[in-house]
Amino acid sequence: MAEYNLNSEKLKKLEEYIDGIEEKEGALINILHEAQDMFGYLPKDLQLYIARKCNIPASKVFGVVTFYSYFTMEPRGQHVINICMGTACFVKGAEKILTEFKRILNIKEGNMSEDGMFTINTLRCVGACGLAPVVMVDGKVYGRVKVEDVEEIIKEYKK
């Protein structure tokens, strides 16, 4: 385990989780979910470890990680802010809301704030067009968001 540049305590827990699974290849998505929950993201070292532990090609693990948008290879903040950029949200000002989040948190889209608290992403459509523009923070939906609401939303998660 020492060859991986990863937290050994978390790696041990992941190893125990994987060892408890009989059909490892069929459980790859579940294993990746567990690993991302433990580590916060799936760096290449962790993907390689999972591939070796499950006796499957690293390319298959990488393929699954890059195919599903839930998985990330970059560290995320404690709180993930998703701004919907679907047509209804965009028309109702989602771009201005995104700009305000980036300005207040001083980060670019897809990046994590310096303090590790926030990551900002955009989504194509969350399917809540009647609430446009929509912002989701850690899965909590905020509808009819105005630029003036952005600071209050951020304060809610800084507590």
Rank of each mutant, 00 (worst) to 15 (best):
D45L: 05
L48C: 00
Y49L: 01
I50H: 03
R52I: 06
R52W: 10
R52Q: 14
C54G: 02
C54F: 09
N55A: 09
P57K: 08
A58T: 13
A58D: 09
S59I: 11
F62P: 00
F62R: 11
G63V: 10
V64T: 14
V64I: 14
Y68P: 02
Y68K: 14
Y68C: 05
Y68E: 12
S69I: 02
Y70D: 11
Y70S: 01
F71A: 07
F71N: 07
T72M: 01
M73A: 09
M73P: 01
M73Q: 15
M73R: 14
E74H: 12
P75I: 03
R76W: 01
R76F: 01
G77C: 01
G77E: 04
H79V: 10
V80A: 09
N82S: 13
I83S: 04
C84D: 05
C84L: 04
M85P: 00
G86R: 07
A88T: 11
A88M: 11
C89Q: 11
F90S: 14
K92A: 13
G93V: 11
G93Y: 09
G93D: 08
G93F: 11
G93P: 02
G93W: 07
K96T: 00
K96Y: 06
L98P: 00
L98R: 14
L98N: 08
T99D: 09
E100D: 06
E100H: 09
F101Y: 14
F101N: 05
F101D: 04
F101S: 06
L105K: 10
N106T: 03
E109P: 10
G110K: 03
N111R: 07
N111W: 00
N111Y: 08
N111S: 13
N111P: 00
M112T: 15
M112H: 01
M112V: 13
S113W: 02
G116L: 01
G116V: 03
G116R: 04
G116H: 02
M117D: 04
F118T: 10
F118H: 04
F118D: 10
I120G: 02
I120K: 04
I120A: 12
I120T: 14
N121H: 06
T122P: 07
L123D: 15
R124E: 15
V126K: 06
G127T: 10
G127K: 03
G127Y: 09
G130S: 13
V134R: 02
V135K: 08
V135F: 08
V135S: 07
M136R: 12
V137I: 15
K140G: 02
Y142S: 05
Y142V: 07
G143N: 12
G143P: 06
R144S: 14
R144M: 12
R144I: 04
V145Q: 07
V145I: 11
D149N: 12
D149G: 07
D149K: 07
V150Q: 03
E151I: 13
